[in-house]
Design a binder for these strands. Sequence first.
RNA 1: GUGGAUGUGGCGUAGCUGGUUAACGCGCCAGUUUGUGGCACUGGAGACCGUGGGUUCGAAUCCCAUCUUCCACC
Length: 374
Amino acid sequence: MKPAVTYELLHECKQTGARRGVVHTPHGDIQTPVFMPVGTQATVKSMTPEELKQEVQAQIILSNTYHLYLRPGEKIVKEAGGLHKFMNWDRPILTDCGGFQVFSLKDLRTITEEGVEFRSHLDGSKHFFSPEKVMQIEEDLGADIIMAFDECVEYPSTHEYTKQSMERTTRWAKRCKQAHTTENQALFGIIQGGFYEDLRKKSAEDLIELDLPGYAIGGISVGEPKEEFLKMLYYTAPLMPKDKPRYLMGVGTPDYLIESAIAGIDMCDCVLPTRIARNGTALTWNGKIVVRNATYERDWTPLDPNCDCYTCKNYTRAYIRHLIKANEILGVRLLSIHNLKFLTKLMERVRIEIEGDNLLNFKNEFYKQYGYTK
RNA sequence: GUGGAUGUGGCGUAGCUGGUUAACGCGCCAGUUUGUGGCACUGGAGACCGUGGGUUCGAAUCCCAUCUUCCACC
């Protein structure tokens, strides 16, 4: 039987080895490498699905098992006809398993082989996530791609703990595969192993044996220095199957996205563009600007002169600064549109440069213009 | 006119039985933000404590005068 989600490789950049491909899903194709906006609670904060399609041109969005389970509850979403219908989004959706959220609860959770007991951040009520439970929730939510329940260990962690945790994540992945019943959803495994190469290798090998339709790298981009991030990324990505989508979880700064593509990653997601939008910051081709700052009080130019997004075509930095200072919702919306569109355009460009076997040159050019030093 | 109250960073206040660098909220300035527990978090600047005099080793704190604003009464 054909998996719900498949990967088609179109071209490999001769300069870097980066992959230009297509991910086929029940809700349409995704041109890769791609950046996926995050809509934790069945909404990319402040954006309508129409804006995401028409203006941002998002190809796929994320949503979250933990949050939707707590509120409104996966049964409500199921009753609505699944996430796609519930939120009126007809393109692909990926649900994160809630592992990251549950483990970030720290004092509020207990891990056992069976699963994780945790308390809701909303009302303190007790809950239990097992691999089987998470599969049931993700199936009720109905995304195209569902993630296996894993543990994301924090940085830094000991080799011993990371090993234990990684092995458990692998056992949980097996249980997820067993519990997974729907045919129109693809279950992706998550490679763990922290910042230890031997553990990453082992994790990748054992998970690949399960022959899942896609794989992700989890547990990096968790606050480590950039050198550590790059080291793990470049070590782990080549271990992943060539004929399946490769997803790097939690990456969203422009430099990390370009590095990921070079490492052979196809998909990335991050809250960064929408989060910094809420705090008054814009990504531009010339670097990050905190438009909330006083310097922009009388700046009558757009956020980014090289941008053709709705925000940049119609509004000035001075106006957006005013909106953000005044805590007006529109400020957040305009910045979110811009930041998301910026990353869409960046990835579009990355795809073109891969096709032209020119990604490394582009990276150097971009770094220089953006202001990155290395 | 009489009596009472009030006056502290841009704004609103705390401190006022006298004792090291005057506190807080908002605002202001800046930084952070990487599988969203976030319209969040972390820093920072900014006050001759209405004015003038006095008591005291020492006064935003006590006394006197004066001005400001508010209230009450005739």
